[in-house]
Simulated scan of single mutants.
Amino acid sequence: MTPDRFNECLEHIHWSTETLAEILGCDESLAEAYSLGLTEVPMKLGVWLEVLAQTHEAAESGRPTGLKGKRYSVGN
C-alpha cells in the first residue's frame, strides 16, 4: 500500500493517524511513519484499511441527508 492510498483510506473512514494508533494499540509515531512512507504498511493492515475504506465509500451514497442543520430542542 502506498502512503497516498494509506492516507486516502484514512480519509474515507474519517480517521486520523492518532485514531488509527488508538485502535491498533500502537504509538502514533508508527501510524505517522506509514502515512509519510517512512516504513511499509504491513499487508494485513493494508487489506483491512482497504476493506474499511471501500465499505465507507459504498455506504456514503445511502447517508441520510435530511438531518443536515437540524437540532434537538425540548418540546419538539
Rank of each mutant, 00 (worst) to 15 (best):
L38Q: 04
C26V: 02
G69L: 06
L38R: 05
E50P: 08
A59G: 09
D4M: 03
K68G: 00
G69N: 04
G62H: 11
T2D: 15
E22H: 07
E40H: 08
W15E: 12
L67N: 02
S29M: 12
G75D: 00
Y72F: 05
C26L: 00
A58I: 09
A33I: 01
N7D: 06
A31P: 13
T55M: 09
I13D: 01
P3T: 00
P64C: 11
E50Q: 14
K70F: 04
E11Q: 13
L52H: 14
V74S: 02
P42L: 14
G46I: 01
R5E: 11
E8H: 09
E28D: 13
A53D: 05
A59S: 12
R63A: 15
A59F: 14
R71P: 06
A58R: 08
E18C: 04
E22K: 12
A31Y: 12
V74M: 05
W48F: 15
C9E: 04
V41M: 03
L20R: 05
L52V: 03
D27V: 01
G37W: 12
P3D: 05
P3F: 00
H12D: 11
E57T: 15
I23F: 13
G25Q: 04
R71H: 12
E8M: 13
D4G: 00
H12T: 10
E8V: 10
T2Y: 08
E40R: 14
M1V: 04
G75M: 05
S16E: 05
P3W: 00
V47E: 06
K70G: 03
W48Q: 12
V51P: 06
T17H: 03
V74T: 00
E28F: 07
S16P: 00
Y34G: 12
G46E: 02
Y72I: 09
Y34A: 03
E32L: 08
G62D: 13
R63S: 10
Y34L: 07
R71N: 06
L30F: 02
L38A: 00
E40I: 10
L49E: 00
E18R: 07
A33H: 01
P42N: 14
S35V: 05
A53Y: 06
W48P: 07
L20W: 07
V47Y: 04
A21Q: 14
T65K: 09
S73M: 01
E32Y: 07
T17N: 01
K68D: 00
N76I: 12
N76F: 08
L49I: 01
L24Q: 03
A33P: 02
S35C: 11
L20I: 10
